[in-house]
């Protein structure tokens, strides 16, 4: 039984706009265990990116507002209500984050080596109780180690390069190196491969899978791509309209999807092995975040909808293997 490194409990977050409140997260419970890859999957507007940013308090507040009762437990401590300076201590040391567009996340006026070194120096400062400055050779060696860790063949050259001199795949590797150089317990990856070509994506996913064996870091992997989830995740949570609707280990989710939304999502993807099959269409579109439907948020699009669905929000039903689903179809 792996202990939980990060536990999100009843996370509720609104965005207060001039036109009204946007209910971005409506009570999310999610846990990430030690050395585990948790996949968070959903379409645009479901709140998955907001959730990732919430862990590190990166949503601009205002207009974002965390509602009472929301807890984010990290190393036994609730970090949900921390202010910016307290959060800075958590970011980059306990929890790191990488984003979709490495171009905008890497500072264009510093070399890759300098940026990785920054992250290493911060970590060393906190690890050592005295304010002794770590020797630059030590830091330099660690930078090269970090680059080798992400399978960069020529770490010296890359360390001295500026971001714009590197290709998309290289930049993303550099980002991962930077994030891991801080030796975090949890890495939050928000669509890290979405902007990459599919062959480069395959390389990065292979890299990340390999890294899981080497470093003691758990990953919260956020994406809209179910195929990527199947490649990398141990456990999967499916999000819809600010809530998690299904959660299971990756085998169970793909072989036996329970929630109609998950089923629809899987069915809507063309599969190379089944080209003759007509892809399923989910009617309608994602609900307005300012006006989510009453009862189950998915009911307007669900082919199994009943009156109960229109009135009551379904609670989670858990099966033996830990497969959770929030749907009235599965209540006793």
């Amino acid at each position: 039984m792996s202990a939980e490194v990060l536990s999100i409990e009843n996370l509720r977050l609104n965005f207060n706009t001039e036109q009204g409140a946007l209910y971005a997260l409506r009570g999310v419970d999610l846990a990430v265990g030690r050395n585990e890859v948790v996949g968070l999957v959903g379409e645009s507007g479901c709140g998955k990116t907001v959730l990732g940013l919430s862990v590190l308090g990166l949503n601009p507040m205002p207009p974002a507002q965390l509602l009472d009762g929301s807890r984010i437990l990290f190393k036994g401590r609730d970090i949900a209500g921390l202010n910016q300076s307290e959060l800075t201590l958590v970011r980059g040391t306990g929890i790191s984050m990488i984003f979709q567009e490495p171009m905008t996340s890497l500072n264009p006026v510093f070399t890759v080596g300098e940026q990785i070194a920054e992250s290493i120096k911060l970590r060393l400062q906190r690890e050592q109780s005295e304010k002794s400055r770590s020797s630059s050779t030590k830091v330099g060696a660690e930078v090269l180690d970090a680059l080798r860790l992400v399978r960069i063949a020529d770490p010296q050259r890359v360390a001295h390069s500026y971001p714009h001199e590197l290709s998309g795949g290289m930049k993303q590797r550099a980002m991962i190196a930077m994030a891991l150089a801080a030796k975090p317990l949890v890495l939050i990856a928000d669509e890290p491969t979405t902007a990459l070509d599919v062959t480069i994506q395959a390389q990065i996913l292979t890299l990340m899978r390999g890294l899981m064996r080497e470093v003691q870091t758990s990953i919260l992997f956020i994406t809209h791509d179910l195929g990527v989830i199947a490649e990398i995740a141990d456990r999967v949570a499916v999000m819809y309209a600010g809530q998690i609707v299904e959660e299971a280990n990756v085998q169970d989710l793909f072989s036996n999807p329970l929630h109609p939304y998950t089923q629809g999502l899987l069915g809507s993807l063309p599969k190379l092995s089944e080209l003759d099959k007509e892809i399923e269409q989910l009617p309608g579109s994602v609900p307005d975040a300012m006006n989510p439907p009453k009862g189950c948020s998915f009911h307007p699009r669900c082919k199994h909808v009943t009156d109960q669905c229109r009135m009551t929000t379904p609670k989670f039903v858990v099966s033996g293997s830990g497969h959770k689903v929030a749907c009235h179809l599965y209540h006793e």
Partner: peptide, 25 residues
């Protein structure tokens, strides 16, 4: 071959071992 091998399959039991896909465009 490389392209087809890189496509993520929606079947976790079919995870590929280390690929021979190297380099960039």
């Amino acid at each position: 071959e490389t392209l087809l091998a890189s496509v993520p399959r929606t079947d976790p039991s079919q995870r590929r071992p280390e690929e021979k896909i190297v380099g960039e465009q």
